[in-house]
Design a protein around this nucleic acid. Structure first.
Lengths: 229, 229
DNA sequence: CGGTTATTTGACGGGTATCAAACACCGTGG
DNA sequence: CCACGGTGTTTGATACCCGTCAAATAACCG
């Protein structure tokens, strides 16, 4: 197969799906893989397409989403470098249940289902790795359902901010992982509501300038989650 | 282990997780399993508990849910006879991410994680079965997220009714799979809203009397989903 | 039959979506 | 360098779905 940079190989080796493989196993798996490049907004596959591969993101972001008849989109998750997706499809009747679209420019590695299947039979440890990966996804989806069912838009927004700040108690700052509209969709609200909510959180020490977000005091923001409006 | 009825064995054998096993494999797996009985509303495990087993429902229903700090419940899924749950937990750091509670009286089979793990190494086909089972759960959760994100309470209710009717185009009838309050929670709405929505659907040929639901014309109800308020 | 638990119904308020328009940002080409 | 179109973001006004609180009614069980 085509040229993987050494950076790429680092990513592949660090991915929890493949880290259990030694060099030989990896090579034999990758030799049928192919390197793909997608432009911004280019679709990798649609919901219902035959599933012939799973994918590893090397660079950029891929969003998985579903569409209603009326064209409204529900983003299920966004995957970044080092993450694999569509593992589940090869066990689900061979159809992808969601669509995959490049958020920006994306490079990714496609790995043949058939090939991987054969590899699993030879080395059952891979199966454990896949189970672990899918278990993570399950947990994530459960978290999303919980959020949608029992948190308000404001609470989900705060929680998103805290997630991005990633622990700590003092001041923090970060940049939006992607378009605000996409973040809003992930959080299950409209861009308008997201914007308004962020503006309103100024009084809680949140400042937004473009894609840059700064939080005066993470602990204080976290406190806003529990006891209050 | 203790007494499994022949009915129980039929259920175990029919479950997609175990149907790939022959008699010997099954016996060796079950000999460390234990038969549990839970009373209505009895909790099997809480979120955060150490995960030492996965479970197969023999009789009754088990709900998996999360609770907010304020005590509000978000039901993730309800499992019935022949279904396995908590497979994922053994690959997720050994902690259950949700709580499991008996909806009514329940009989179930607990299968040791360690034991199953050993079995998988001996027979990799089991791993495929587990992957298939988890893939199903993933798909289901994705469906729920889609529903919550882009359908109104009314649309979700209609879709629930159609699901229960299970295809067909003429008249249909069924009984609620469980308490209306629980159904409402599964659908991401309050019991009040669920009740009101059902009442309002009378004009679409839906009639509810206690736990019994009848639909005059499934096709007509389905039509209400697409083009209208 | 009495007491508890489910379900329904009503009134009300608030959180979000929707529609619409102004505004900021950014790469392109003149 | 600046005009310019396109996209992303903000802001405003409005409507309405749905949650909340409360009470009445129905169903259930010992």
């Amino acid at each position: 197969m085509s040229a993987l940079t050494t950076d790429d190989l680092t990513i592949v080796g660090g991915c929890l799906l493949f880290k259990c493989l030694d060099r030989n196993d990896l090579d034999s798996l990758l030799e049928t893989g192919s390197l793909l490049t997608l432009a911004r907004n280019q679709q990798l596959f649609a919901a219902g397409d035959a599933a012939k591969s799973l994918y590893l993101v090397l660079d950029g972001q891929i969003k998985l989403s579903r569409f209603s008849r009326s064209g409204d989109e529900a983003v299920v998750h966004v995957f970044g470098p080092g993450e694999t997706f569509a593992e589940a499809a090869m066990f689900m009747g061979g159809r992808y249940p969601v669509a995959a679209t490049a958020v920006g420019a994306v490079r990714l590695l496609a790995i043949s289902n058939a090939r991987l299947r054969a590899r699993v039979l030879a080395r059952p440890e891979i199966a454990f790795a896949m189970l672990g990966s899918m278990a993570q996804h399950l947990k994530m989806l459960v978290g999303q359902i919980e959020q949608m069912k029992l948190m308000t838009a404001r609470e989900r927004t705060i929680r998103f901010l805290l997630d991005q700040c990633d622990g700590g108690t003092g001041p923090a700052a970060f940049t939006m992982p992607h378009d605000k509209a996409l973040v809003a969709n992930r959080l299950g609200m409209t861009p308008e509501t997201f914007s308004r909510t962020l503006a309103q959180l100024t009084e809680r020490g949140v400042n937004v300038k473009g894609a840059l977000v700064s939080v005066d005091d993470v602990a204080r923001l976290a406190a806003a989650l529990s006891h209050e409006t």
